[in-house]
């Protein structure tokens, strides 16, 4: 009972940051048709931003996270304007550009952080007991991650469903050409999608900074997980990304608890291959693109 409750809470926490990453990646693919390989490193930049603002310069934690969102969002806007836009007609070109960004961000982080692991102290030390079961606890910092994911993804969902801007963005994701014919400026919405997607990655990195050890390579694990999730969910589908994030996080956490951490990711990759073989366009994916 204790272990089940604990594993469930851990899985909820894992779904939160996975969903933050995967939804951003799916949004970028949906609107721009680009797989952003640098997404994991945007997460890493977010974590470094919080380390620098909060742990080094003593800003309040949530202000530092807001700073991380701004910084990473700005990087996203720059990437779209300077790198992705000239490649608009070449689906592989955008991907290659993002590989270039991946390399560059990594070296900049080594330079900036001098390659050492950075420790970021948690905002509220300690844990809370969950469901009244004494052995099952969750650290406050992990609750912050869950809260941030619910808040940010809820806001995004409301934005996409309730505002005209959000409608237009979803129209771009559904069919770029048809959206352009309706007078939607595609370039502006590509900027919006890239900015939002990058900001989500920055937010994930920011709130995760006190939990993970911040180093230049933390993005790698994130990007592998995020790839698995968006493939299983169907690339470009936001609902699919959230659903797949929850499924995958539960699967991964359960396997880690009962079998072992090393095998969990391998099984995840195999699971993804199986999904692709059965449905070559993902669980909720529709038409083939690219």
């Amino acid at each position: 009972m204790e272990v089940i409750a604990q594993t469930t809470v851990n899985a909820l926490y894992a779904s939160s940051y996975t969903a933050l990453m995967a939804v951003g990646l799916a949004l970028i693919f949906g609107v721009m048709g680009i797989i952003n390989f640098a997404h994991g490193n945007l997460f890493m930049v977010g974590a470094y931003a919080v380390w620098w603002l909060y742990a080094v310069n003593g800003w309040p934690f949530f202000l530092a996270v807001a700073g991380a969102i701004m910084v990473v969002g700005a990087i996203g806007l720059l990437m779209e304007r300077m790198l992705f836009r000239p490649m608009r007609d070449n689906p592989l070109g955008g991907l290659i550009m993002s590989v270039g960004v991946l390399f560059i961000l990594e070296v900049l982080a080594v330079f900036f952080g001098l390659g050492l692991m950075k420790h970021v102290p948690p905002i509220y030390p300690g844990s809370v007991v969950i469901f009244g079961i004494p052995g099952a606890t969750i650290p406050w910092q992990r609750l912050v991650v869950i809260g941030a994911a619910v808040l940010l993804l809820g806001t995004l969902w409301a934005f996409l469903r309730q505002t005209r801007l959000g409608w237009a963005l979803r129209a771009c994701a559904q069919d770029r050409e048809a959206a352009a014919l309706q007078g939607i400026p595609i370039n502006k919405f590509a900027l919006l999608a890239m900015g939002l997607g990058a900001a989500l990655a920055g937010a994930a990195g920011g709130v995760m900074a006190p939990i993970v050890q911040v180093d230049p390579y933390i993005g790698h694990k994130m990007i592998v997980t995020a790839f698995i999730v968006i493939i299983v969910g169907g690339i470009g589908s936001l609902e699919g990304a959230v659903l797949a994030a929850i499924l995958y996080a539960f699967f991964h956490t359960w396997v880690t608890t009962y079998i072992g951490g090393g095998i969990a990711t391998t099984l995840g990759l195999v699971l993804m291959l199986v999904v692709l073989v059965v449905r070559p366009t993902g669980l909720l994916g529709t038409a083939e693109r690219g």
Partner: peptide, 8 residues
Amino acid sequence: KGFYFLIG
């Protein structure tokens, strides 16, 4: 095909 092959 395409991105699915790449990631697969």
